[in-house]
């Protein structure tokens, strides 16, 4: 059951995911029209509450909201003092007083969107919290694979890189396994969480073994501070062992696609010429992000609360 909020893919079952993806397919058609705007959320207010900067995700939500005719307000908060829970909740209450119909939250600390959801009447959509989840990224990845491959059930999906610190990896692991894909994760042993296989995936410490026969290879962004010794000896070493290029990709299926949540570190986790052309679908992912976020806003924003439903 799709509830009030979207906090993580972990909360969804297969039917919920299929409903969102199906809705996104229709939203994609709206984006192809000459007038790319429908009046669905006219007079509704959506607040983008970003405690951590992110131009891409914020813009994608903003376009999605505007295509549904909602008023989208960007509220970027300086994150320095906001790891204190008091000020987060104060901010949330301030926003609540403005009666938004949905609040989109990004924060560097896991669990903050949930805290805010507990304090607000409006639905809260998690746009990425710490190393916890980034559900709309997983939804757009699922949607992209569905469009490219026609199915998700039975596919082999290899997620490569810094699995430990990646909310994208976590949301995708939930999403792809719930929809019946075989999920593999791979990376340097220092960046693989010890109990990751309990999430229903297979862990590899060899890139070649991980992508052997894969239909989808997903590279993750590696933060530069993790490339300075504690986890990985050097950028060069990481890129030689784990950076995707056309030569390494030979081990995957011939028709495998390459994905990346962006922004990419060119020449680190993915080679220049691979990032820019097929089989990479990085720009399709960005494009699909708008349709998927429209679907999420359609399903969650500005719904009548229980008890005030109009008669039909």
């Amino acid at each position: 059951m799709i509830g009030r909020d979207l906090l993580g893919i972990e909360d969804f079952d297969r039917a919920d995911l299929e409903r969102i993806l199906e809705t996104a397919a229709h939203m994609q058609e709206v984006g192809l029209r000459e007038v790319k705007r429908v009046p669905t959320l006219r007079g509704r207010t959506i607040i983008n509450l970003f405690f951590e900067s992110s131009t891409r995700t914020r813009t994608s939500f903003e376009i999605a909201g505007k295509r549904l005719s909602a008023d989208v307000i960007n509220f970027s908060a300086e994150s320095s003092s906001l790891s204190k829970s008091e000020s987060i909740l104060d901010t949330a209450r301030t926003l609540d007083a403005m009666a938004p119909d949905a609040v989109i939250v990004r924060h560097k600390v896991a669990g903050v969107p949930k805290r805010i959801a507990d304090a607000l009447d409006a639905p809260v959509i998690n746009a990425g919290d710490g190393a916890h989840e980034h559900p709309t990224q997983a939804l757009l990845d699922l949607f992209t694979v569905l469009q490219e491959k026609g199915r998700i059930d039975g596919l082999t999906v290899a997620i490569v890189g810094d699995i430990t610190h990646s909310r994208v990896a976590r949301s995708n692991i939930y999403g792809f396994t719930k929809l019946g894909a075989d999920v593999r994760v791979a990376g340097p042993p220092t960046l693989l969480p010890p109990a990751v296989e309990s999430l229903g995936v297979k862990a590899f410490t060899s890139l070649r073994e991980a992508i052997e026969g894969a239909d989808v290879v997903m590279a993750l962004r590696i933060q530069s501070e993790r490339l300075q010794g504690a986890y990985v000896p050097s950028v060069r070493e990481y890129s030689a062992m784990w950076g995707l290029d056309r030569a390494k990709l030979r081990y995957a299926r011939e028709d495998a696609i390459v994905m990346h949540p962006g922004p990419i570190n060119r020449g680190v986790e993915i080679a220049h010429d691979l990032a820019d052309r097929r089989p990479s679908v990085i720009l399709e992912q960005v494009r699909n992000g708008v349709a998927v976020r429209m679907a999420v806003l359609y399903l969650l924003a500005g719904r009548a609360q229980a008890g005030q439903e109009g008669a039909r």
Partner: peptide
């Protein structure tokens, strides 16, 4: 997407092609 009763309902109806 053009209905006038969407915000009066709890569940959003499924879209069609």
């Amino acid at each position: 997407l053009y209905r006038d009763d969407l915000t009066r309902r709890g569940e959003r109806p499924p879209l069609r092609r």
